[in-house]
Simulated assay, not measured.
Amino acid sequence: MLLAGMASACAAVLHLGVIVGGPSWYRFFGAGERMAQMAEAGRAYPAVVTAGISALLMLWAGYALSGAGAIGPLPLLKPALCLITAVYLLRGLAVVPMAVASVPQPATPFWYWSSAICLAIGIAHLTGLIGAWSSL
Rank of each mutant, 00 (worst) to 15 (best):
T127G: 10
A51F: 12
F29K: 04
W60G: 02
Y112V: 12
W25R: 03
V96Y: 04
I84N: 06
I84T: 00
L16W: 02
V87R: 00
I123V: 15
Y112A: 11
S115Q: 04
L93H: 05
S115C: 03
S66Q: 07
A61Q: 03
S102R: 05
P75C: 00
Y112F: 03
Y63S: 00
A120H: 01
T127K: 08
V103T: 06
G131Q: 13
A70N: 03
L81G: 10
V87H: 01
S134A: 14
A64C: 06
R43Y: 06
S24H: 11
A61R: 00
G17K: 04
A116N: 01
T108W: 09
W25P: 08
V96M: 05
A61D: 02
S24Y: 13
I123Q: 09
A116G: 14
A116F: 08
P46A: 09
L76K: 06
I84L: 04
A132S: 10
I117V: 12
G42A: 05
P104H: 06
L74N: 04
Y88S: 04
A94V: 07
M58Q: 05
A107E: 09
A99Y: 04
W60T: 00
A101Y: 08
I19D: 14
A70I: 10
M38C: 07
A120L: 15
H125K: 00
A80K: 02
G122W: 03
V49L: 14
G128D: 09
Y112N: 11
W113C: 14
V87L: 06
S102F: 08
F29R: 01
L76N: 01
I121S: 07
S135L: 15
Y45D: 11
L89T: 03
P75D: 01
A36C: 15
R27L: 15
L89W: 01
A41E: 08
I117T: 03
Y63W: 07
A55G: 06
L16V: 05
Y88P: 07
G92A: 01
F110K: 08
G128H: 11
G17N: 06
G21L: 13
F29P: 06
S66F: 14
L57N: 00
I84A: 06
Q37L: 15
T85G: 02
S115G: 13
V48R: 06
I123M: 11
L65W: 15
M98Q: 10
T127H: 14
A132V: 13
G67Q: 05
V100T: 08
P73E: 14
P46Q: 01
A132K: 13
G32C: 11
V103Q: 09
G122D: 04
P46I: 08
A39P: 08
A101N: 08
P97K: 00
A47I: 01
V103A: 08
C82W: 12
V100K: 08
T108S: 14
T108K: 15
P104N: 01
M38W: 13
